[in-house]
Deep mutational scan, measured.
Amino acid sequence: SISSRVKSKRIQLGLNQAELAQKVGTTQQSIEQLENGKTKRPRFLPELASALGVSVDWLLN
């Protein structure tokens, strides 16, 4: 799922939720909701993929 991929990649990069949120241009709460499965397809998906160094396709599939 996107939530597990985001969380595992974030941890692999040594980032906390607030640091990832800053790179993406969103809030820590938005990252938390995404990782908890409350958000399925965030509006900041391209920025998120870029910050994590992955493709949008990788996040979604």
Rank of each mutant, 00 (worst) to 15 (best):
S1G: 11
S1D: 14
S1R: 09
S1F: 10
S1I: 13
I2C: 08
I2H: 04
I2P: 04
I2E: 03
S3C: 10
S3W: 09
S3L: 04
S4D: 15
S4A: 14
S4C: 13
R5M: 08
V6C: 08
K7E: 08
K7L: 09
K7H: 08
K7F: 08
S8F: 15
S8Q: 15
S8V: 10
S8W: 15
S8C: 15
S8G: 10
K9P: 02
R10Q: 01
R10C: 03
I11Y: 07
I11P: 01
I11F: 08
Q12Y: 09
Q12E: 15
Q12A: 13
Q12T: 09
L13S: 05
L13V: 06
G14K: 08
L15S: 04
L15T: 01
L15H: 03
L15N: 02
L15G: 01
L15P: 00
L15M: 15
N16I: 06
N16R: 06
N16S: 15
Q17D: 03
Q17S: 07
Q17A: 10
Q17K: 08
A18F: 13
A18Q: 12
E19M: 08
E19C: 05
L20Y: 01
L20C: 03
L20W: 02
L20Q: 02
A21D: 00
A21T: 01
Q22D: 12
Q22G: 09
Q22Y: 10
Q22N: 11
Q22K: 13
Q22V: 12
Q22F: 12
Q22H: 14
K23N: 06
K23S: 08
K23C: 08
K23D: 02
V24E: 01
V24N: 03
V24R: 00
G25P: 08
G25M: 05
G25W: 03
G25Y: 04
G25C: 08
G25V: 03
G25D: 04
T26A: 08
T26Q: 09
T26R: 06
T26D: 04
Q28K: 13
Q28L: 15
Q28H: 09
Q28M: 12
Q28N: 06
Q28P: 11
Q29D: 12
Q29T: 11
Q29L: 12
Q29K: 13
Q29W: 14
S30P: 02
S30N: 13
S30D: 15
S30V: 13
I31A: 01
I31L: 08
I31F: 02
E32S: 10
E32H: 10
E32A: 13
E32R: 12
E32T: 08
E32Q: 12
E32L: 09
Q33E: 15
Q33T: 14
Q33L: 14
Q33V: 07
L34P: 03
L34C: 05
L34Y: 04
L34N: 02
L34F: 07
E35M: 03
E35A: 01
E35L: 03
E35G: 01
E35T: 02
N36V: 09
N36F: 07
G37E: 05
G37M: 05
G37A: 07
G37I: 03
G37C: 06
G37S: 05
K38C: 11
K38Q: 14
K38S: 13
K38T: 15
T39E: 12
T39Y: 12
K40C: 11
K40L: 14
K40G: 11
R41D: 11
R41V: 14
R41Y: 15
R41F: 15
P42N: 07
P42Q: 05
P42C: 13
P42R: 03
P42K: 04
P42H: 09
R43A: 15
F44S: 03
F44I: 05
F44D: 04
F44P: 02
L45C: 03
L45Y: 06
L45V: 08
L45Q: 01
L45N: 00
L45M: 08
P46V: 14
P46M: 12
P46N: 13
E47K: 11
E47C: 08
E47R: 13
L48E: 00
L48W: 01
L48N: 00
L48P: 00
L48D: 00
L48M: 05
A49S: 06
A49I: 04
A49W: 01
A49H: 00
A49F: 01
A49V: 04
S50Q: 14
S50P: 02
S50V: 14
S50E: 14
A51W: 04
A51E: 05
L52S: 02
L52V: 01
L52D: 00
L52N: 00
G53V: 15
G53A: 06
G53N: 10
G53W: 04
G53C: 09
G53Y: 06
V54K: 01
V54C: 06
V54T: 08
V54H: 01
V54N: 01
S55Y: 04
S55D: 11
V56W: 06
V56A: 07
V56F: 07
V56E: 10
D57W: 15
D57Y: 12
D57R: 11
W58Q: 03
W58Y: 09
W58I: 03
L59Y: 02
L59T: 01
L59R: 00
L59W: 01
L59N: 00
L60Q: 09
L60D: 07
L60Y: 09
N61A: 13
N61P: 10
N61T: 11
N61Q: 12
N61R: 10
N61G: 15
